[in-house]
Design a protein around this nucleic acid. Structure first.
Lengths: 102, 102
DNA sequence: GCTAACGGTAAGCCATGACGAACGCAGTCG
DNA sequence: CGACTGCGTTCGTCATGGCTTACCGTTAGC
């Protein structure tokens, strides 16, 4: 999927990965994430936007706060994307072995 | 694993992803990869180094050529890394549901 | 209504890293 | 032993993108 590519790109950044890890451990609001991270709140907000666009997280409004949580489908997409390479490379090995037998 | 992080970072680059896709479909040499890609051979060589350091590919010398192929363990590491988030987020949902019941 | 809390957005700065050109090294063939 | 092929490496350049500061919209409480 094209979303899997965006997800992988999103998770490539250390700070964004840290944010995602915290959300996975416990859904939380933007401010709570910014505390305990060495970056400003706007930076966290920007990262969350990228994660959301990649389909890795979802947000829910609770009063003035927005609670972010992991979106399982996003992880599933990445997994499917990787499995495709797994299958392809296995098939390539089989073809190679057959051609060598000949 | 710490290698999974390197692998994700490696796959975040479009060119590097393209190279990895081609290798998955068919193990090949550096020159063959450079042909059919809009970048120079040294660039491909650098990308291959990153992919190799990340544990995503392996190389085998064949005369003056080096054949690169997918390293399945690398993909497995990334998969395990993602599954960890999957499990964590599921557990977090359970805990949240329980606390709401009280 | 006013004020404060919580978040998203815009603009600008700066570090990271992807790229090509030039070079060096190993292996093959005559 | 030359000459050629196939790769890796270094270096300098330039674009991408992550960060902060300042600002604006929205919601809850008085």
């Amino acid at each position: 999927m094209t979303n899997a590519v965006a997800a992988i790109t999103a998770l490539a950044d250390p700070t964004r990965r840290k944010i995602f890890e915290r959300i996975a451990a416990h859904p939380s609001a933007v401010g709570a994430l910014a505390d305990g991270l060495p970056v400003s709140r706007p930076a966290v907000s920007q990262h969350l936007r990228v994660l959301k666009d990649a389909g890795l997280v979802d947000d829910e409004a609770q009063g003035t706060r927005r609670i972010y949580r992991v979106r399982q489908e996003g992880l599933a997409d990445v997994r499917a994307y990787l499995d495709q390479f797994w299958d392809q490379s296995l098939a390539a090995f089989r073809d190679l072995a057959e051609s060598e037998d000949a």
